[in-house]
Write a protein that binds this DNA or RNA. Structure first.
Length: 422
RNA sequence: GGAAGGUUGGCCGAGUGGUUGAAGGCAACGGUCUCGAAAACCGUAAAGGAUAUGAGGAAUAUCCUUCAGGAGUUCGAAUCUCCUACCUUCCGCCA
């Protein structure tokens, strides 16, 4: 959500910047008119209320002195009715304005490359070399099938498509990664560990920007106004909703299962671990002072990269262009890991600076000094990492000619000493 | 699922229709005192919004709103009524 005053004063400039996002801005057009109407109604209703408040005091005085207050009361009856009418009108206008503000995406940071689609994303840096194989490589779903560590057939029976059972050492590998990542961020990167609810209410989804625009992407509970979280970002960011924070920065690392309807991606990545309705993810979330957020974005991205480096998986860092930023980010880096069977890099982490976009929606503020005015914090988050995709990357990059898979060294202790899945 | 009680400012906590934006306390900030600190004493202190002056900034002034959220009664609601959410306790049910 953008600041209403800022929007009023910089309307044309904002419009110009949002053009690069390729978003539909038709609703945005009504802003000026509604904003003016709102302020006119406020003036009218407030002057009437001031009048009423003065009269009310007068009436109280008359009553105390046991004088006749009836004429004053009669007059205020009319004023009261008028106030009620204006308040109702004002509420409608404010509701419309709120919907508009909620549906305007964030303004891209000046360092974000301008582009029309994902092809305009910029390679920021590359780490490691894609491995060379002197045998016929297999996609991870075939490797997993041969090793008997992933079971899609039964998952389809039990639930449906895009769900999976991890079995045996597969389940162990997933859990090893989860533990390794959590430990690493908590022990080496200074994050506080968090285990959040997987279901949140509507206000939380609005707070981080999933709603009201993208309701069809979410899993909603039938009888409740509750949603399955698409990422731990939602509960962890909303943890501090409507709070005035005192000590910044705050750094949290949270594991959660994530749930996505994947509406609109029918037919894409139908096989394997890349695109599931439910997947596991370790998420990094930070609340920082505005002046620190861009430095923090680099730091946080580095924290996610460190995991890939420890796992010895080749990857690259992409700076997302204006068209591929998503709704809420002012700047975003995607970490893409090498997937040999697809001969390409695939997203495994997204690290974003939202500036005050989420903080404004969710009412997350801080004070610089004990008596200073509250200011909005900047929020950031990044996957550190998506675990299912990490499993896919390990299976593919570490596959051997005999179909076995070598476990990265750092994971062996977490695997109970298992060095190779065969 | 049934019953009772609760939700007030950064925190605790008074307050059952009319100078209550809200007593009191703690924490905070400024000052007096002190070599300095503590203690003591004095003082300042909520958030959001509109308007005016001002550079549509900082600031100041006036006004409005806000006592979980919403609706209602009333000239007037933290205070009365209804609904919702959450918390606590008891009963039931389940693990």
């Amino acid at each position: 959500m953008l600041d209403m005053k800022f929007l009023r004063n910089n309307y044309e400039e904002v419009k110009e910047k949002l053009k690069y996002r390729g978003e539909d801005l038709s609703e945005f057009e009504m802003f000026g008119e509604l904003d003016e109407k709102r302020r006119k109604l406020i003036s009218e209703t407030e002057s009437l209320k001031a009048k009423r408040n003065a009269a009310t005091e007068e009436i109280a005085k008359l009553k105390r002195e046991k004088k006749d207050a009836e004429p004053a009361i009669q007059e205020m009856r009319e004023v009261g009715k008028k106030i009620a009418e204006l308040d109702k009108e004002l509420k409608e206008v404010e509701e419309k304005l709120k919907q508009i503000l909620y549906s305007i995406p964030n303004i891209p940071h000046e360092s974000v490359p301008i582009g029309e689609d994902e092809d305009d994303n910029v390679v920021h840096r590359t780490w490691g070399e894609p491995p060379e194989f002197d045998f016929e490589i297999q996609p991870h779903w075939d490797i997993a099938k041969n090793l008997n560590i992933l079971d899609w057939e039964r998952a389809a029976k039990v639930t449906g498509s895009r769900f999976v059972f991890y079995t045996g050492l597969g389940a162990r590998l997933e859990r090893a990664l989860l533990n390794f990542m959590m430990d690493y961020h908590a022990d080496h990167h200074g994050y506080t560990e968090m285990l959040p609810p997987y279901i949140v209410n509507r206000m939380s989804m609005i707070g981080t920007g999933q709603l009201p625009k993208f309701e069809e992407d979410a899993f909603k509970l039938e009888e409740w106004d509750y949603f399955m979280i698409p990422t731990a970002e939602v509960p962890v960011t909303n943890y501090h909703r409507d709070e005035i924070m005192l000590d910044l920065p705050k750094k949290y690392v949270a594991y959660s299962a994530c749930f996505r309807s994947e509406a609109g991606s029918a037919g894409r990545d139908t096989r394997g671990l890349i695109r599931q309705h439910q997947f596991n993810k370790v998420e990094l979330v930070q609340f920082v002072k505005p002046e620190d957020s861009y430095e923090t974005l680099e730091e946080l991205t580095g924290h996610a990269e460190k995991i890939l480096q420890e796992l010895e998986l080749p990857y690259r860092v992409m700076s997302m262009c204006t068209a591929d930023l998503g709704f809420t980010a002012a700047k975003k880096y995607d970490l893409e890991v090498w997937i040999p069977s697809q001969n390409t890099y695939r997203e495994i982490s997204s690290c974003s600076n939202f500036e005050d976009f989420q903080a404004r929606r969710a009412g997350i503020r801080f004070r610089r000094e004990p008596n200073a005015k509250p200011e909005y914090v900047h929020t950031l988050n990044g996957s550190g990492l998506a675990i299912g995709r990490t499993v896919a990357a390990i299976l593919e990059n570490n596959q051997q000619e005999d179909g076995s898979v070598v476990i990265p060294k750092v994971l062996v202790p977490y695997m109970g000493g298992v060095e190779v899945i065969r």
